[in-house]
């Protein structure tokens, strides 16, 4: 198994954390993983990309992911700014945080979840922004099966030192796991 992923988010939205949690979850399953932030001079709000790889074997490659198997979009509004499906393999999938249950990508298998609502319901709001990253990792687990939801919850619980934050974020992941559907 060898899977390459690309996350699209905004600066400050937690895309790096999402990829890190994914990598940790993969590690729990005895897999090898990378979470690669792409850093620039971007500040809060600007579009950012994060890459990840998951494999049964050690990963030597360090260049960026240009032909991902999976694209995860943390912010629906980004679709106006960024071609999120660029380089996506024909059989690839899109995991989309979306207010509506319809796919804007007829060529790709798309999964939709309203992670923003899930985050708001659980009071996961930091500096006025709903933090959707943990929900999206849960959704990703369901849509792609690259990691199990149990591993995701374990990784989230370990990531947050505050028990209440760990609980709310785990709940978000599980909720998104349950809610996400192909659209």
């Amino acid at each position: 198994m060898y899977t390459e992923l690309r996350f699209h988010g905004r600066g400050g939205q937690g895309a790096v954390t999402a990829a890190t949690i994914l990598a940790r979850a993969a590690l729990f399953e005895g897999k090898w993983a990378q979470a690669i932030p792409e850093f620039g001079a971007e500040r809060r709000g600007a579009p950012v990309r994060v890459y990840a790889r998951i494999s049964d074997k050690p990963i030597q490659v360090h260049s960026t992911v240009v032909e991902p198997d999976i694209v995860v979009v943390l912010d629906y509004e980004l679709l106006k700014l960024v071609d999120v499906t660029e380089g996506l393999k024909p059989e690839g999938i899109v995991v989309l945080n979306s207010p509506v249950n319809t796919s804007p990508f007829p060529k790709f298998r798309t999964f939709c979840v309203n992670a923003t609502r899930i985050a708001k319901d659980l009071n996961l709001v930091v500096s006025g922004w709903p933090t959707v990253n943990t929900a999206m990792v849960g959704a990703l687990a369901k849509a792609s099966g690259v990691v199990s939801i149990d591993s995701v919850v374990k990784a989230i619980s370990e990531y947050f030192s505050s028990p209440s934050l760990a609980k709310a974020n785990s709940d978000a992941a599980v909720k998104a796991f349950e809610e996400i559907t192909q659209c």
Partner: peptide
């Protein structure tokens, strides 16, 4: 820089 310094890996 970044490629290792900020990339999460086992």
């Amino acid at each position: 820089g970044f490629i290792l310094s900020h990339t999460v890996a086992p």
